Amino acid sequence: MRDHLANERTQLAWLRTGAAVMVVGLALARFADGGGVDAASLTAGGVLIAAGAGVAAYGLRRYRRIGVELRHGLSPTAASTRGPTLASAAVLLAVVVAAVVLVTTG
Rank of each mutant, 00 (worst) to 15 (best):
R64E: 08
R61A: 13
L42T: 11
T43K: 14
A19F: 11
L86Y: 13
A51M: 12
H72F: 05
G52R: 11
R61V: 07
L74C: 03
G59C: 05
P76D: 03
R9E: 01
G46N: 13
L12F: 05
R2I: 04
P76W: 02
T85L: 14
L26K: 03
G18N: 07
A19W: 10
I66R: 05
V101W: 12
A32F: 01
P76N: 06
A29S: 09
A98D: 10
M22Y: 02
A56F: 14
L74Y: 10
R61P: 01
G67F: 08
P76V: 04
A56V: 07
M22I: 03
A44N: 04
E69R: 08
L70H: 04
G45T: 04
F31I: 00
Q11I: 07
L70P: 02
R64C: 08
A94G: 13
A90C: 06
R30P: 00
D33S: 04
T85Y: 04
G73K: 01
H4Q: 11
V55C: 05
L12I: 01
A56Q: 08
L5A: 15
G52S: 13
R71T: 02
G59T: 05
A79P: 12
Y58D: 10
A57S: 04
F31H: 00
L86P: 04
G18S: 09
Y63D: 06
A19D: 04
T85M: 09
G106N: 07
T43Q: 09
L28M: 14
H4N: 07
A99L: 07
A53T: 04
Q11C: 10
A44S: 04
L15F: 05
A87T: 05
D33C: 03
T10D: 14
R2Q: 11
A99W: 05
T85W: 03
Y63G: 06
R30C: 05
G73H: 00
Y63I: 00
V103Q: 12
A87M: 07
R82G: 11
V101R: 10
A78Y: 03
V55D: 03
A79M: 08
Q11N: 06
V23R: 04
L42W: 09
Y58N: 08
A57W: 14
V24I: 06
L42R: 15
V95F: 15
A78R: 09
A57R: 14
A98H: 12
A51P: 12
A79C: 10
V37K: 02
L102A: 11
A44L: 06
A56Y: 12
V23Y: 00
A98L: 12
G36H: 06
R2P: 06
